[in-house]
Design a protein around this nucleic acid. Structure first.
Lengths: 112, 112
DNA sequence: TCGATAGTTCCATGGTTATAGAATAGTCTA
DNA sequence: TAGACTATTCTATAACCATGGAACTATCGA
């Protein structure tokens, strides 16, 4: 991975609102069973990852936890996807989202 | 550490040139003895960390490796310091710089 | 104390980003 | 198929960022 890819990832996480969105997805879908999620990242609506993993209706759930317009939140989702940090898959009218763990480990290794 | 501190750190690393500066300091002062430093982060002038650790004349050395004005590089140094990623100490006419390892481990734990 | 060297600060500028309202498009259900 | 719902895209705007030239400050050595 090139330096510019890393800076792209860091840029995606450089906005506080976007970082919060990312952490809500991350903590609610990637925390080990039984781990407590800090209140700032806890989704109001309980998140049932189900068999497929990820978070269903992620966009809606996050909109309910933030005081930003849906338009703005949509842009932020796009940025996170472009940076390769999350993946979203259509599920009817809504989206299911995952954090790409490879991206996380890439950063961790970069800062080794 | 608050969410806004993390986003500040990520912002400091979000510019490719600034990330390169950071990595040059990081790799040249924090790499384990004998580890090979990738060419993109290697300083032209050999870096003798000496007893005090860190990199002496860091600003000058980095200016010699980048095609940015000194003014711009100075701004970038300031950003990295404000984010708590590096510390600079005057040494006569020049500066000695370190990477703050606590900042690095904070990020790594944040992305645990 | 003068000149050289190292780095900062001031200022201007072109480009990018965060934000939201309005219009639009895709999908579900009755 | 009409209406409701979910999310995206278009458009605009104010704020912020990256950059460099010029002037400045601090320190060193002669």
């Amino acid at each position: 991975m090139e330096l510019s890819n890393y800076s792209k990832i860091f840029k995606a996480l450089s906005n506080e609102q976007r970082l919060k969105i990312f952490m809500m997805i991350y903590k609610n879908c990637c925390s080990p069973e039984g781990a407590k999620i800090g209140s700032e990242f806890l989704l109001k609506e309980e998140s049932c990852c189900g068999i497929k993993g990820g978070i269903d209706r992620a966009f809606s759930k996050i909109c309910d936890c933030m005081s930003l317009s849906r338009s703005t939140i949509s842009h932020h989702f796009k940025e996170l996807q472009n940076a390769g940090l999350i993946t979203c898959e259509r599920e009817g009218q809504t989206y299911r989202c995952w954090v790409n763990k490879e991206a996380i480990s890439a950063i961790r290794e970069f800062l080794e």
